[in-house]
Design a protein around this nucleic acid. Structure first.
Length: 246
DNA sequence: TGGAATGTTGGAAC
DNA sequence: CGTTCCAACATTCC
């Protein structure tokens, strides 16, 4: 469910709730004071990376879908929602198996929008600076670093590395400058492709590396392993993807 | 059918 | 005290 592009889609699908007032709130969340939500209008819906943010007059609710989270608009699942927001006309916005956390402080104090690969404010220059400040960080770990590439998840990681022919174990400091710039650019570009493909229900069709067994470029078997400090699944081609450094 | 996975946190261990 | 590691969370798919 949840890499950055999916959260942007969620925000767009829920846009109709902006300006509406929460009539009733309930759920099995232990961190939310449901009564305090009632009567508050939704001032805005935002996303930062994989965070979904509900802006209210007195607080911001941060929803994180983690690995298994899901949501429904004007529908319910069979299981109990973690958070259910009901509106005057009977419409509802339900969240399941997610982390819900009221944020301290305003949105702009908590979030640097320049780090969100899907944001208008995305700053490639800032990402490059962070990468240069951590030259030993492996490419597979750098892409998953939410402080650098907020919104990039494991699928996007595998696809971007394959598209750029970068071996996941390459330290970012070993990448030639144009390659490093390409990494920053493609993290964003591929995220937008991901969004379009997901909306068209054809995401998996476009996966070239993630969960694939054979390299579509050279036909040899993909390598796979839980690489880097993050130990997330990597699918890569030893022949097509160059290992910089070492 | 059991195991693993589009993810993060919080606390133990060192 | 900083860093690292691992369990926990709890659903869906293969």
């Amino acid at each position: 469910m949840p890499e950055g592009p999916s959260i942007v889609i969620m925000k767009e699908q829920a846009a109709g709730f902006v300006g509406r007032t929460i009539a009733n709130a309930s759920g099995n969340s232990k961190t939310v004071d449901f009564a305090s939500l009632e009567g508050q209008p939704i001032l805005g819906l935002h996303s930062w990376g994989k965070h979904f943010l509900i802006e209210l007059p007195r607080q911001v609710l941060r929803i994180h879908l983690l690995m298994f989270g899901s949501y429904r608009i004007n529908e319910r699942k069979d299981t109990d929602p973690r958070l259910s927001l009901g509106f005057e006309d009977g419409e509802e916005f339900n969240f399941y198996t997610c982390s819900v956390k009221p944020l301290e402080g305003g949105l702009d104090e908590v979030y640097d929008w320049r780090a969100d690969v899907m944001a208008d404010a995305w700053s490639p220059a800032l990402a490059l600076r962070k990468l240069r400040a951590a030259p030993d960080k492996l490419a597979c770990d750098a892409l998953l670093d939410q402080n650098i590439f907020a919104g990039v998840g494991n699928i996007i990681k595998n696809e971007v590395l394959f598209r750029l022919r970068i071996h996941p174990l390459s330290p970012v400091g070993a990448l030639p400058a144009p390659k490093l710039r390409a990494l920053v650019k493609d993290a964003r570009d591929y995220s937008f492709l991901f969004k379009e493909w997901k909306l068209a229900y054809e995401l998996k069709k476009h996966w070239q590396a993630h969960t694939r067994r054979v390299c579509p470029r050279c036909d040899i078997p993909f390598s796979k392993g839980h690489l880097g400090a993050t130990k997330r699944r990597s699918f890569y081609c030893e022949k097509c993807q160059k290992r910089y450094g070492n």
